[in-house]
Design a protein around this nucleic acid. Structure first.
Length: 963
RNA sequence: GGGCCUGUAGCUCAGUUGGUCAGAGCGCACGCCUGAUAAGCGUGAGGUCGGUAGUUCAAAUCUACCCAGGCCCA
């Protein structure tokens, strides 16, 4: 029975309705959603939902707990979250335990500065407490920021490298290295302040102008000169070195030359001097060698392992080959203290001879090359910067005071060729501002080349590491090469730091006989104390209270001990994490499936983690290592606060929301450096809106649709809806594949392309007519909704790891599919591909139809430009074509007007292979209801302004309304 | 100076082993729609594939060098 009065046409159009707002208002909505998630313990629910599923472990590399997060830290955590969430949605149990790196110099320096003068009066324990507090505050702020980014994890129970358990485990792992014979104690040069009598880290020296003596010194050749060149037979040959630190000459053990340089023998009077060929003139001029002439030239290579005599001490000075030797400049200063600046400027010829005086106890390069040639790390200078008793002439003398006296001695012995004052930049102590020296002090090392005591094959750490590098999967694949090179080239690991804020090296020294006690058993005993009291115990307790009761010196039987004052390198701390975390948290397991960090960690955490894991388990702690690039500005340059090109993650969040930052992270290819700028973020925000609106259209048109009740079976669906599902399958496949391989930018592009091209511009535009104007419960409309539902559902799931907030919001606004609706999308799994028979052919057919559509659209645009039409519904299209295409079009004859979104389509015979498109005004009147044109508008008496389709639809609506 | 990496339209990215490979989306310009509306649709203009020189019948794709940039070292 029909209603008495005709319906209000406007109200019979099924326009979209949804609570899913067009404006995201992320800045407000994100925190609200985070709060809800926290209240419902979403992370706990996810864990419970995945119990007993196969595990997938991403192990978090701990950010340094010193300052607020920057965009790089944010990006890193977001990428990790992509991995964790996508693996979770693949069905894995993928717990995430975040960590923080809490010890180390930067924190100590920060606290130092904050305390100022007060530090001097503080006990070590009190100072450590201040450091602990600083780290604790920093990590709390970071935690808050990471959570704000929508990163899920065990935020209430992160791992801290300063926790009792972790410190204890760190000490135990060091004991493990000792036990297996990898640890030794040796000397190595460090920056040393003779005023404060302390070692300095690189960050604690500052460069200032300083005047040093610059001298050219003769080293008599002690071999047969004919070995160098026949012309030199029987001559008095001297090797000429240049230095600005005469006081290091007593420690000279060698001279380095560059094997790639050519050297010249220069005759002056009876003497012959050896200098680099390129510097002959400069040196001759500087040293006033009038009338000097070159009598021989030879390659530096020839000098290898020949010997000179020290200019005044009865000792050999070994000739060595080293490519660190340059043609002058500060790099030739044996202290190596100011090499960075000069090398960057590619300075040459300022001063120097091309031969470098080498004192392994007083310079870094000297130490390295000396090590290669088996020289002793000789450093006859004490803590106060005075020569020790063994130094002839200068014992007890302060090194800087000794400079002029050494020069005088050289002059007396005829070994000085030239001397002058020299201004240059020289490192000074940042606290007392006095010049520092480079001085070898005893340090603890982990040897990369000693053989493991307990292994049959006696492999070294280096060998084991190189073996493991081949077994690990590296993404990108060049990571393997980089890691291999890093490991092959790295020197022994100096794990000593002369600092307070860290895990002490648990070793003891017998005051009576000097014996060192560094046994694994004792170390584990100490570690147990750390476990109870934290490593502060090392400073709070007396040595005897750290040792087992009544422990006596195994050598002399005394019981008077001093404690080691060095702490472990922080890289040892974080390197311990695989064991200290993966094996301690019950939900985790060793080894991890994946590590993901910036490329700087090849030398850092990837490396230290590997070494520690080898000591602990003879294997790598990771199966896959993913390395990402750095965040750079819009021009590809590094970000610096001083350059003003840095982007603050918190600012982005406050302006646009975390989703935008997450989407930016997903949109860029992280395998390379990732550009970020206001313009780029602007683009990302726009693409966010597109994704959101696409979802909103689907949701709006699902109003009143109950998937259980109203879904149309596949066979009954309109073909274009089946096409949309086939396209959906393609996208699901591509996105899942990309997630599988950590290619998030491919996920982004696939989904974005699907939303903009496939859905928004094509499918949605076409089905609007059907959705809006067909009777709400008609099969044709339900068919479209069935597809829309599947699309919206899949889209939400696929977006969920990236757009954590928005996907959940979509989920919320999807019609409920019954009781099993999960309270959050993050408990759901990825969509499954529901492959239908004949899908490939279907896709191919429609691809051709849409090809025709493109041509029609071009023709429509021409008509529009010619003012013939405005809306495409004002058009009637005539197609002329022959052959196979004609047959295809014929088959879809009734569909074509909808596909083209025009009112009428005529198909006429034409020539094969050539499609002609003509556009004309549509016939008839515009239907008031569906806006299509039809000659039959007016046929209905009840609805005189409406077309025949609408008449039918209205009748159906009236029937339903009555029912 | 060494190791590793990068350089395709204004932006983000595709371009298997060299031969329709010069593409997509965004942005931009112009236009349409006003029933996804601080939305939606269409058409179009943009690139000597960082540069140079080679190899080749043929190179964005291979080689060398150079330039610009990034990370780690020295």
């Amino acid at each position: 029975m029909s209603t008495e009065t005709p319906l209000d046409l406007k109200k019979t159009v099924n326009l979209p309705r949804t609570r899913f707002a067009q404006q995201a208002n992320l800045v407000q909505s994100e925190p609200a959603r985070l709060k809800r998630w926290a209240e419902m313990d979403l992370y706990g629910k996810i864990r419970a939902a995945r119990r007993n599923r196969p595990k997938f472990i991403l192990h978090d590399g701990p950010p340094y707990a010193n300052a607020d997060i920057h965009i790089g830290t944010a990006m890193n955590k977001i990428l990790k979250d992509f991995i964790v969430k996508s693996r979770t949605m693949m069905g894995y149990d993928a717990p995430f335990v975040p960590g923080y790196d809490c010890h180390g110099l930067p924190i100590e320096l920060h606290v130092d500065r904050k305390l100022g003068e007060k530090k001097a009066k503080m006990s070590a324990v009190a100072f450590r407490r201040a450091c602990r507090e600083h780290a604790s505050n920093a990590l709390k702020r970071q935690t808050r920021d990471f959570q704000r980014l929508g990163v899920f994890g065990e935020w209430s129970n992160p791992y801290l490298t300063m926790s009792n358990e972790y410190e204890a485990e760190t000490a135990r792992l060091f004991a493990r290295f000792v036990e297996r014979g990898f640890v030794y104690r040796g000397a190595r040069p460090v920056y040393w302040c003779i005023h404060d009598q302390t070692a300095l880290a690189e960050a604690e020296v500052e460069y200032r102008e300083h005047t040093s003596p610059s001298i050219y010194v003769k080293f008599p050749f002690a071999d047969d000169p004919a070995k160098i060149a026949p012309e030199l037979a029987g001559r008095k040959v001297f090797f000429l070195i240049w230095t600005t630190t005469p006081w290091t000459l007593p420690a000279n053990l060698g001279i380095a030359v560059n094997p790639l340089f050519e050297y010249a023998a220069v005759e002056h009077g009876d003497d012959v001097y050896i200098v680099a060929s390129e510097l002959v003139e400069t040196v001759a001029e500087k040293c006033g060698l009038n009338g000097a002439r070159v009598i021989a030239r030879f390659s530096g290579e020839k000098l290898d392992r020949l010997e000179c005599r020290h200019p005044w001490i009865e000792r050999r000075s070994l000739l060595m080959l080293g490519e660190h030797v340059t043609l002058g400049g500060e790099a030739d200063a044996e202290t190596e203290l100011d090499v960075r600046a000069s090398r960057d400027k590619k300075v040459t010829g300022k001063a120097g001879t091309g031969l470098v005086h080498t004192a392994p106890g007083h310079g870094h390069d000297d130490f390295v090359i000396g090590g290669r040639y088996g020289l002793e790390v000789y450093c006859p200078v004490d803590n106060a910067g005075r020569f020790t008793a063994e130094v002839e002439h200068f014992a007890g003398e302060r090194v800087f005071d000794a400079n002029p006296k050494i020069i005088e001695l050289l002059r007396e012995r005829g070994m000085l060729l030239f001397s002058e004052q020299y201004r240059h930049r020289y490192p000074h102590c940042w606290r007392c501002h006095n010049p520092v020296i480079f001085r070898a002090t005893p340090q603890w090392f982990i040897s990369l080349d000693r053989r493991a005591r307990d292994l049959e094959d006696g492999a070294s750490l280096r060998e084991m590491a190189l073996r493991e590098v081949e077994r690990v999967e590296w993404i990108p694949s060049w990571g393997r090469d980089r890691m291999r090179n890093t490991i092959s080239g790295r020197p022994d690991w100096c794990v000593s730091r002369q600092r307070l804020w860290g895990v002490p090296i648990p070793a003891f020294y017998c005051r009576a006989c000097g014996e060192t006690v560094a046994s694994p058993e004792i170390m584990r005993h100490v570690a147990d104390i750390f476990e109870r009291e934290s490593a502060d115990a090392w400073y709070a307790r007396e040595a005897k209270d750290l040792l087992p009761e009544g422990f006596r010196c195994p050598k002399c039987g005394a019981a008077d001990w001093s404690k080691e004052s060095d702490i472990l390198d922080v890289w040892f701390d974080s390197g311990s994490s695989s064991v200290a975390v993966l094996e301690k948290y019950p939900e985790l397991r060793w080894p991890a499936d994946v590590y993901l960090e910036g490329g700087d960690q090849f030398r850092g955490w990837f490396n230290s983690s590997l070494i520690v894991a080898l000591a602990a388990h003879n294997a790598a702690p990771y199966r896959t290592v993913v390395a990402h690039g750095w965040v750079v500005d819009g021009e590809g340059r590094a970000m610096h606060k001083s350059l003003g090109n840095a982007i603050s993650p918190n600012e982005v969040i406050q302006q646009s929301g975390a989703e935008v930052l997450r989407l930016w992270t997903a949109s860029s290819d992280y395998h390379e450096d990732m550009r970020c700028s206001p313009e780029i973020l602007q683009r990302v925000a726009e693409s966010y809106r597109k994704l959101r609106n696409t979802a909103r259209f689907a949701l709006g048109n699902l109003h009143g649709f109950d998937p259980q009740r109203d879904s149309v079976s596949y066979e009954e669906m309109e073909e274009i809806d089946r096409w949309a599902l086939a396209e959906l399958n393609r996208v699901i496949e591509r996105a899942l594949e990309a997630y599988e391989h950590y290619e998030f930018h491919a996920v982004y592009h696939a989904l974005h392309h699907y939303c903009t091209v496939t859905l928004s511009a094509l499918y949605f535009d076409i089905i609007k007519d059907r959705l809006y104007t067909f009777a709400p419960r008609s099969r044709a409309r339900r068919s479209a909704q069935t597809a829309l539902y599947r699309i919206a559902d899949a889209l939400a799931r696929l977006l969920a790891p990236i757009l954590v907030f928005t996907a959940d919001e979509i989920w919320e606004n999807l019609p409920s599919s019954g009781d099993e609706q999960l309270p959050s999308i993050h408990l759901a799994e990825f969509p499954r591909i529901q492959r239908a028979e004949g899908e490939e052919e279907l896709l191919q057919r429609w691809e051709r139809l849409f090809g025709v559509r493109d041509q029609v659209l071009r023709a429509l645009e021409e008509a529009r430009q010619a003012k013939m039409i405005g809306s495409s519904l004002e058009a009637r299209v005539r197609l002329r074509v022959g052959g196979a295409l004609r047959e295809l079009l014929e088959r879809y004859r009734d569909q074509l007007r909808y596909i083209f979104i025009v009112s009428q389509v005529e198909l006429e015979a034409g020539t094969e292979g050539e499609l002609q498109v003509e556009v004309a005004r549509a016939l008839g009147q515009k239907c008031e209801r569906c806006w299509n044109y039809s000659p039959r508008v007016g046929e209905s008496e009840r609805y005189p302004t409406v077309c025949e389709r609408c008449v039918e639809a209205l009748a159906e609506i009236e029937r339903e309304g009555a029912a």
